[in-house]
């Protein structure tokens, strides 16, 4: 399943993304559950604010980390996030 390139991505209102000082990690919180995120996943999710499509997320992150060729990894992670209900499609 490929992501629709025009869709705008937003973090799910049914979940909460939060920095945990004690763990030095961002985590996703939801009813009776928690997922610990690595830094790159957290950076992707923070850009899911309802205003960006896939390409925009890629350009912003490549710029931020002075990197190239991130599209494949980012779109793979977004698919995982979508399947888990962490993000919604607009």
């Amino acid at each position: 399943m490929a992501l629709n390139p025009d869709s705008l991505w937003a973090f799910s209102p049914m979940h909460r993304l939060q920095w945990e000082e004690a763990q030095q990690k961002d985590v996703i919180l939801y009813p009776e559950g928690m997922v610990e995120l690595n830094q790159s996943s957290a950076e992707i999710l923070k850009l899911c604010d309802g205003s960006r499509n896939l390409d925009k997320i890629v350009t912003d992150l490549e710029e931020k980390f002075q990197a190239h060729g991130l599209k494949h990894d980012i779109s793979q992670f977004l698919e995982v996030a979508l399947n888990n209900g962490w993000i919604t499609e607009h």
């Binding site: 939060q18 945990e20 004690a22 763990q23 985590v27 919180l29 009776e32 559950g33 928690m34």
Partner: peptide, 9 residues
């Protein structure tokens, strides 16, 4: 919370 608890039932 100070020790790291984050889920509260």
């Amino acid at each position: 919370r100070k020790m790291g608890a984050v889920q509260l039932g």
